[in-house]
Each structure stands twice: as structure tokens, then as C-alpha cells.
Simulated assay, not measured.
Amino acid sequence: MSEPLQHYVPKFMLRRFSSGGRELVHAFDKHQDKIFAFSTSKKSKVGVAAERAIYDFNFQGVPLTLEPALSSLETKAAEVTARVIAAQALPPAWREEKAILASFMAVQLVRTKAMMATLDDLSSRMEGFFRAEGAPEEFFQPDPLVGSKENARKAHYAALITNASRDWAPLLLQKVWHLIKTTDDTPFFMGDHPVVRFNDPNAEGRGKLGLASIGVQLYFPLSPTLALSLMCPTYLEMMIDGIERIDRLLVGRLGEPSSLRAQRKEISGIVEALLAGSMTEVRPENVEHFNSLQVLEAERYVFSVKSDFSMVREMIQEDDTVRWGTRFVEGSGHF
């Protein structure tokens, strides 16, 4: 079997958010309102964002683990992201490297404690509903092939993780990938569920955050100052349409020319960066939005290269449910 302590946020990602000779990462524990620091040096046994035997389970009495496969994927993703960080740009022709990152991000979406807690919560609510409806006890018993209820739970998570690359990576590859950069003064956070999603709250439909949903965007921090943004192609189309509308206004001498030209220049710069895979610098308000998503989706820990977590405290004070990660909302209201 694998080592008992297994990380759901890979150690190479935690090290990227460290500083100083002791390679310290600052962390905020949302459950305990506690700020602390821990070392990510190779001599340190990092016990944060980790759990014992989280990827170990039994099938027909045979012990199995996902740890070696996850470690292999992490090694490849660490190499690709290191090259991106060094170049401060996405490679012009990087089909294989992009596929590696898409697989890694797809797996990272489902391997965390946040996802496990979300599925446990949904499973508990579903069981309560079906029990209230009179379902027989055998309905709730796990398949004999996976034994106990706890082992069945872990085997189910293992199946989700195993299938993530096949099921979700192709959807990620359909997004428009580009890099966003901030400054050392206003760094990105990284939560313990680091691949986060966002969509316009006013978007139509219930499944707003599904990877195939129109408008959904994903963000993934590579370092305190660099992150990947995966944008829905519809936003790129909207920006190109916006440039064309501005051009028509300028030709028709409608509107204030200097303001329109300034808008066109800003939008054109973003479009060019998106099409080229180059980097765009974001404003402090964009960093705040990014960090708020990391805080909301983190199940427990928020990491930073700095010890300032005032934003996390403020979000919790405004809404105590922020202490935990987001949960699924079932549309019918039954559970």
C-alpha cells in the first residue's frame, strides 16, 4: 500500500506559495479562525491539506491505492507548470503539455476534501429523503464487492478520480486558456480546492457551474503572482463583437471618439493575449474576485505567501457558511 499520509493539494503546489529559507506557507484555518505557518521544505513532513490513506480502498478484499498514479500525474504537472512560470507565457505549440494540465486540473477538481465533503453531504440528504419515503434497508447497503459502507464510499471517490481525465479534461481543453498576472503586493490566494469555477450569477439555467455550461470560467493558481484562466469561448466571441461594434460607432462618428478608442485598445489587448496565449495583468479588484472564489470553495484551508487574511475573516463574518466549502443545491427541493 502507499504511504498513509496523502495530500489532496500536491506538495509542489504548496511549495510555490512558500517563502524564506524555511519555505514557510501562511495558512488560514476557516474552521478554527486560526492563522498559522508551516514548512514545505523537503525535510518537513507536511501534514496540511492531507489525510491518512485518503486514496486507499479494497475491492473484493484486495487492497488498492491511487497514490502512485496521482504522484505520476503530479510530477508531470509540476514540470509543465514550472516551464510556464519560467516563461511567463503559454507555449505556442503545447498540445501534449496542455493535455497533461487538463488531466491534472480535472483530477484536482474531484480529489479534494471539499469535493468529498460535498458528495457526503448530498449522499446524506438523499438517504434521509429516501428513508422518509419508506425505502427498504437493503436499498442502502453497499455492493458486497466493496464491503463496508466506508470502503464503498472511498471506492466511489476513487472511481470519480480515476474517470476524471476521461470525463472532464476534454471539456477543459475546449476553453480559451490564458495567463493572468498580479503583483507581489496583491498576491493570489490558493485554497485547499484550488481549481475554482465561476459564472455570471444572472446566467440562465440551474447548472451554471457545470464544465459544459455556457459562460463558466475556471481559475487555477500557479504561484502567488501567476494563474491560469480558462474562459468560455462565448466571452471571446463577445469581445470580438464588441470591437466590431466600436469600429462601427467610430466610422459613423457616434459617441465620444477618445473614450471609444480607449475601450477598443483595452479590449483588443485582452483578445490578442487570449488568442496568443500570452499574459494579461489584472487589477486589484480582479485579484479580490479570484481570491474570494478560493476562499468560498476551500473546505478548510486558505494559503498565501503573506500572513494577511483579513479578507477571509470579513467573508466569514458576513456569512458563517463560508467556513466550509460550497455544497450542491438540488433543484427540486426534495433534498
Rank of each mutant, 00 (worst) to 15 (best):
A27I: 13
G207I: 03
L66P: 00
S223T: 12
D308L: 11
S292W: 01
V271C: 10
I54K: 04
A135G: 08
Q141W: 07
A276V: 07
K98L: 11
A86E: 12
K76F: 00
H7W: 05
A155I: 10
H193A: 06
E281W: 01
R245P: 01
E299P: 11
R245S: 04
D33I: 03
F189W: 09
L249E: 05
F28K: 00
S41M: 13
Q174A: 09
F328G: 08
L172C: 07
D192Y: 05
A99D: 12
S71N: 03
V25S: 05
V146G: 09
R300E: 02
A69K: 01
L260C: 02
V9R: 00
A169R: 00
R166I: 07
G191F: 04
I180F: 03
M239A: 14
L90I: 03
G331H: 14
F290R: 08
R300V: 02
E3L: 06
L24P: 00
R95V: 14
A86L: 09
N58E: 14
S259L: 14
S72D: 15
A132P: 09
L24R: 03
T234L: 15
A158L: 05
K43D: 11
Y301N: 05
R111N: 01
G325D: 10
H193L: 07
I214M: 15
Y55D: 08
R313W: 03
L275E: 12
P194V: 10
L70K: 04
T65G: 03
F59G: 00
A93F: 15
S223W: 11
T118V: 10
F17H: 06
R95Y: 11
E288H: 15
K11A: 07
S307I: 04
N286G: 09
T225E: 13
F188W: 04
A89D: 13
M126G: 05
W94G: 05
S268W: 08
